[in-house]
Design a protein around this nucleic acid. Structure first.
Length: 496
RNA sequence: GGGCCGUUAACUCAGUUGGAAGAGUAUCUGCCUUUUAAGCAGAGAGUCGCUGGUUCGAGCCCAGCACGGCCCA
């Protein structure tokens, strides 16, 4: 796969020469006593205590820069906890070790032992007494000023991106902390973390096109899940009254700055709660997250200040369409009028689609981008909410909300439909829609209906898009910036 | 699916009207024991994304394709 590259050819020849000189390029015997972080802590705690000879630190890391001065050199190296400078002198480490060191490159891993001293410019530096090669790098790192910038190369070779770009490292550390904080938030409230099938015989829980795969031994097709919802609710039926899952779902759709074919969701279900309880819980959770991550409930996203600390607005779908979309509420049941409105505003809607589909499409285009501050939208029509409980006040609407922040859909939650007969009717309607050409309509899931017949206590459930949340908290404009290995088309490599 | 932009050395990027492919970093050689974008002197390094076309001549113009970015659907 390699193109012939002068610099890489030379590097590989150097590795061969070192090997011929009986140098182990990949040893496994350097014992680390301290991390860079440990050493920095020691400096902070007792700087007067440090002397060149005592204590001795054994630390390992990747060399990121080398300044050579003939018989002495400064190097910068890094481990997971940070970066440190070291001073390597021929008269300290000996001729043999120094000659080996001269053969080493930026990007190599070294093990260093020595004490700390302060340079003329006052920088704490490791005075190396012993230097060992820990792992040889066979490829050069990108340039030190600009690093790796090309987005395609960054995504395809994320390992280099992570080596070179500390802001990228920070994004993924933050993402991990978001997930960790959500997990502890729910565990503290007596939720049980579970894992449900990713390969399903009937894909359910969302309107989306699934990926199909095949089980050879069983001789059957399986679907990668589009949501874990129906399995999590089976667990509620089974008596796990509070469950959550943080994991991947898969949707066979286009790729964009907001969509990746595989994405991460938190879904949680709480028996005896209602959808408005979950709105409260969500506010609390995201404020908890923000304080945890930044110490504040105010976050900056793409030039906008988002304030999570004030009571979030709650608005019905109809009012939102009226206020932000300029659609008269009286028009919402007028199919013909809505279609005319759509075409005069150059919004493409499927004309054969059902009324609720047209309404939500108009919402997506006209309202969603305008919802910068956190906003719960409620009152979704039954026909676009086939798993939600009907509103007791208006049976054509559901006890459901979606959460929007910074113009992105972040969460979707509702009181769960636990009437098996109503659920069956909803599935039948979905099946009819599917037969009429709606490829995203739900499948009939008889097994789930049967489970409901055993009785599911009144329950509210919610899904939160972790990737979108990570975008928000890391001020990332694209979902690819918060997914370690975003989906990329394969590129044809040179043969041989 | 559509529009705009990009693809040149390992990396970041220049490249004039179409007339002998450049810089910095990195690499290699020499000097250098307190540098920190170290310094000085020298050297090597390219399928200009791919395939065609126009032309005496193409990195540059045209067409198609691939991959990517942004926007729209």
């Amino acid at each position: 796969m390699d193109k012939k590259s002068d610099i890489i050819e030379k590097r590989k020849k150097k590795l061969l020469d070192l090997k011929k000189g009986n140098i182990n390029l990949y040893p496994n015997d350097f014992v680390v006593s301290h991390s860079v972080g440990d050493i920095k802590k020691a400096i902070e705690e007792a700087p007067d205590y440090l002397a060149e000879d005592d204590p001795v630190f054994a630390v390992a890391g990747r060399m990121m820069a080398i300044n050579r001065f003939g018989k002495a050199s400064f190097i910068r190296f890094r481990d997971r906890t940070g970066q440190l400078q070291a001073y390597v002198r021929k008269d300290k480490i000996g001729d043999k070790a120094y000659n080996l060191f001269k053969q080493l490159d930026i990007g190599d891993f070294v093990g260093l032992s020595g004490g700390m001293f302060k340079t003329r410019t006052g920088e704490w530096t490791l005075l190396v007494k012993e230097l060992k090669l820990v792992c040889k790098s066979a490829r050069p790192l990108p340039e030190k000023f600009h690093g790796l910038k090309d987005p395609e190369k960054r995504y395809r070779r994320r390992h280099i991106d992570l080596i070179m770009n500390s802001d990228v490292r920070d994004i993924f550390i933050k993402r991990s902390r978001i997930i960790q904080a959500m997990r502890t938030f729910l565990l503290d409230r007596d939720f049980l973390e579970v894992e449900t099938p990713m390969m399903q015989t009937v894909p359910g829980g969302a309107e989306a096109t699934p990926f199909v795969t095949h089980h050879n031994a069983l001789g059957m097709d399986l679907f990668l899940r589009i949501a874990p919802e129906l399995y999590l609710k089976r667990l509620v039926i089974g008596g796990f009254e509070r469950v959550f899952e943080i994991n991947r779902s898969f949707r066979n759709e286009g790729v964009s700055t907001r969509h990746n074919p595989e994405f991460t969701m938190l879904e949680f279900y709480q028996a005896y709660a209602r959808y408005d309880d979950l709105m409260d819980l969500t506010e609390e959770m995201l404020c908890h997250l923000a304080r945890n991550l930044t110490g504040s409930t105010s976050i900056q996203y793409q030039g906008n200040i988002i304030d999570l600390g004030v009571k979030w607005r709650r608005i019905s779908l109809a009012s939102a369409l009226e206020e932000f979309g300029g659609i008269d509420a009286g028009l919402l049941n007028d199919r013909k009028g809505l279609l005319e409105f759509a075409s005069s505003n150059r919004i493409k809607v499927t004309k054969t689609g059902r009324l609720g589909k047209i309404v939500t499409k108009l919402f997506d285009v006209l309202v969603e981008p305008k919802l910068l501050q956190p906003t719960f939208v409620t009152g979704y029509p039954v026909e676009v909410s086939p798993l939600s409980r009907r509103s007791d006040i208006s049976p054509e609407l559901t006890d459901r909300f979606e959460l929007f922040i910074a113009g992105h859909e972040i969460a979707n939650g509702f009181s769960e439909l636990n009437d098996p007969n109503d659920q069956k009717e909803r599935f039948l309607q979905q099946v009819a829609d599917r037969e009429a050409g709606d490829k995203e309509a739900h499948y009939m899931d008889k097994d789930y209906i049967e489970a409901l017949e055993y009785g599911m206590p009144p329950t509210a459930g919610e899904g939160i898009g972790i990737d979108r949340l990570a975008m928000l908290f890391t001020d990332s404009p694209s979902i690819r910036e918060v997914i370690l290995f975003p989906h990329m088309k394969p590129v044809e490599r040179d043969k041989g």
